[in-house]
Design a protein around this nucleic acid. Structure first.
Lengths: 164, 164
DNA sequence: TTTTACGTACAGTTTAAACTGTACGAAACA
DNA sequence: TGTTTCGTACAGTTTAAACTGTACGTAAAA
């Protein structure tokens, strides 16, 4: 019983570190893992008790995870409290969340840099800055094509029939 | 003059956000960008003055960036102070730094999860956990192959002759 | 309708990270 | 040799993030 608990704790601890790699805070990562390892949907109170955090913390954590489409709300007849569950298909969900974050950022930056380029063009002096700016733009372009490639690949990537 | 300064400031601000995407702290990202946009190597004191941070902060920041191989120390005859410069070839450097972080992490986790699997195997009860654990392992495997693919691709990716 | 139970907004608190100033050891200069 | 100038270790401070408890609005139950 006790060592069973320790194994689960270890599992939560380890897996959360991987979730953190996708840009989630330690707390949110831990919350997600808790939800994922639980065999059925959980209420805010249950999560609060399991994670040892306040209900408010859990609430904001769940909102973060929902915004990232990593968690879904679940309805069960006769249950008044909100129920939440981790989404299946971990790999595709996380990858898409991640890649979209990257691609979205790069798109923003492309616009910002182009705009700055306009301003730099109009002044005579800026050869040095201008050169760097060009490098920065190609830098972003390279990142963009890389992540678009990854997105393509992961889209075509087969996952076993259990939906992971 | 003043608007020239604002343009550079904007540039630093924007580009730092991209650097942060690679997992660097805002402060470290800003420091790197400052160094990158400067046309020549800088001393700790110069960076301290330019970023408005204390020398100690700059020092630890530089150490972080050096550990990630994003910054190099430069020697110049007759100059006593340490000089630092941003590495060229931004794209490959950052990508490798990033991919290595991911791949290193996944390798660690593979070992941890395998080890946990051993323990789970030995107890009768754990069908549920066992199933999840299997999913987690394939999850890591998928991530691994993905990032190995990316590494292959970026290795073969050509960058213009200016070395970016 | 009144009562109860839930989710969430908000203000205040705790905790962790970032940062600073002083002080010290080592290397360059005289 | 003594003196100066640098980099960095360390303790203390500031700042930002995470977290909590109360209090309120809303919807279900009685």
């Amino acid at each position: 019983m006790t060592s069973e608990q320790t194994i689960t704790d270890n599992l939560i601890h380890e897996f959360s570190k991987t979730i953190e790699m996708f840009g989630l805070s330690p707390a949110d990562a831990r919350l997600f893992t808790t939800l994922y390892l639980n065999h059925r949907p959980m209420t805010l109170d249950e999560m609060s008790q399991t994670t040892g955090k306040s209900k408010t913390s859990v609430n904001t954590g769940i909102r973060n995870l929902s915004d990232l489409n990593l968690v879904k709300q679940v309805w069960k007849k006769g249950v008044r409290k909100d129920l939440y569950a981790a989404e299946d298909d971990l790999f595709h969900r996380f990858m898409h969340m991640y890649l979209d974050k990257w691609i979205g950022h790069i798109n923003l930056q492309k616009r910002s840099l182009d705009q700055l380029k306009e301003h730099v063009n109009k002044r005579p002096q800026g050869e040095l800055i201008e050169e760097k700016l060009a490098h920065m733009i190609t830098f972003h372009a390279l990142i963009e094509t890389t992540f678009h490639c990854v997105k393509e690949e992961t889209n075509h990537m087969l996952v076993d029939q259990n939906k992971l």
